[in-house]
Design a protein around this nucleic acid. Structure first.
Length: 454
DNA sequence: CGCATACGCGCC
DNA sequence: AAACGGCGCGTTTGCG
């Protein structure tokens, strides 16, 4: 049974997912809930409430309670290795700076780099406090201007891993040897889940040292970790909701979507798409989902603003339905002051008619992004519910446990003996969790003894 | 002193 | 000047 306070929280969040949810209220809960349920009904949110959010409550509680096993000895060793590396870097940086300073202070670092060491600040943006930026992008940009920069970048990378992951994770291992995150159902305005204390949705994956952290997350004895992730779920959702024939055809033919985009915007046959062209197309594909403008695209893609404009306009002529869909969504939102996804999940966008372009543009990006991100979120939630039903139907409760939900992937802990039988079944359920018009869902899976093997 | 903000950065 | 959607978290800094 779900208590009334929880239902009220969910109902309020569905009605206005951006508003902060302060619990409290000694009123008559039943009465408050009844009123909210009438509002949900009127807003077309009944289905999302009853068929997605309510069934998810107990699943999330179970996940939070189960937790994921972490190897404390492994983390301790990793921490020692990181410290050793950090020591070396700190010495080197102090020597090259000619003095000691707080390496974790962007303000002090900025003073060392651009005042004391007189590094040429040309082309370097200033932050709002007036100091030159020292973020990773800036440092990479000036790497050749002074030998202090490379070790500083390295320090940043390793210190981040140490302070955000390796140290805190050790503290958070419970008596059962596992880390218990809290998945927050009302944590994201698009309908996604969030994860806190710790956040297990942003465990490093990119760098070599980052991957090592994933190695600390292990399966129980006699079990394996299994990940199942939706392939290109947001682009598939976009293709479907925009009804774009070119994108739909690409997915039907099981082509690499970024290569297809590259082939179209560069006007070359698909075999002639280079890595660079594909990379730019990938940036473009994601940029469209995020509502990226020419400025941001030029920046990310490392091209001129003029070129960026050309690529974007080429993209929208190649995928005209995407443009048409975005305009339709924006026009509707201007009338309604809210946007809904295919399941009726909504987000209020009062800023859509704001006279200041900065605010109206921001609202427009929300309007074109939320229906995509929010439908993808619905799909993974339905997958959680339906895989849970599968596990119960098959009486696999003791053999298959859902541990993590990371936006487009689910991670299970599965008894070794059951892996071969279970994985194809879960995959099947996930791929059928939601019927997207004209586009199939595709799920990839991986099995390992720890998270870094997945 | 605690707290909010700025900055930076990890993930999808 | 300006930066593209959604998050959570560690550290520094300045404010009350």
């Amino acid at each position: 049974m779900i208590n009334e306070a929880k239902k009220i929280e969910l109902a309020r969040w569905l009605l206005d997912p951006d508003s902060p949810l302060s619990q409290e209220g000694s009123e008559d809960l039943a009465e408050v809930l009844a009123a909210l349920e009438r509002r949900l009904e009127k807003a077309g949110l009944n289905k999302v409430f009853r068929e997605i959010e309510l069934p998810l409550v107990s699943i999330l509680e179970e996940m939070n309670q189960v937790g994921v096993r972490v190897d404390p000895g492994y983390l301790k060793k990793l921490s020692g290795e990181l410290n050793k590396e950090l020591e070396k870097l700190i010495k080197d940086i102090y020597k090259k700076a000619g003095e000691e300073f707080n390496l974790n202070s962007p303000k002090q670092l900025s003073a060392i780099l651009f005042e004391k060491l007189k590094i040429n600040p040309e082309g370097i943006p200033k932050k709002k406090t007036g100091a030159y930026s020292t973020d990773a992008e800036t440092l990479s940009f000036i790497k050749d201007r002074h030998p202090i920069v490379a070790p500083m970048l390295r320090y940043r990378e390793l210190y981040k891993l140490q302070s955000t992951y390796v140290m805190p994770l050790q503290e958070l291992i419970a008596k059962d040897g596992r880390i218990h995150t809290s998945f927050i159902q009302t944590g994201a305005a698009t309908g996604r889940l969030s994860s806190q204390h710790p956040n297990l949705q942003n465990i490093p994956v990119t760098t070599e040292w980052g991957k090592k952290i994933r190695g600390a997350f292990i399966a129980d004895k006699g079990n394996s970790l299994v990940s199942l992730d939706y392939s290109q779920i947001e682009l598939r959702v976009l293709a479907s909701v925009a009804g774009d024939p070119e994108m739909i055809a690409a997915f039907k033919k099981k082509l690499d979507i970024h290569r297809v985009t590259a082939s179209k915007v560069f006007n070359v046959p698909i075999e002639e798409v280079t890595k660079e062209m594909r990379n730019l197309a990938k940036t473009l594909n994601f940029g469209v989902i995020y509502g990226m403008g020419p400025n941001a695209f030029a920046h990310t893609g490392n091209i001129s603003v003029e070129e960026a404009k050309k690529f974007i306009s080429e993209y929208f002529s190649d995928f005209a339905s995407v443009k048409g869909w975005q305009e339709k969504m924006i026009n509707q939102a201007k009338k309604d002051k809210f946007v809904v996804n295919l399941n009726g999940r909504r987000r209020l966008v009062p800023g859509i008619t704001h006279p200041n372009r900065r605010f109206s543009s921001e609202a427009e990006r929300v309007v074109t992004n939320m229906p995509i991100q929010g439908l993808a979120a619905d799909i993974i939630k339905l997958a959680m519910i339906q895989t849970d039903e599968l596990v119960h139907k098959k009486k696999w409760q003791d053999k298959v446990r859902l541990l993590l939900s990371i936006h487009d992937e689910l991670i299970f802990e599965v008894s070794d003996k059951m892996v071969d039988e279970v994985v194809p079944e879960i995959k099947k359920v996930m791929e059928a969790a939601y019927k997207l018009k004209d586009v199939e869902l595709k799920v990839d899976s991986a099995v390992g003894k720890n998270w870094s093997e997945l």
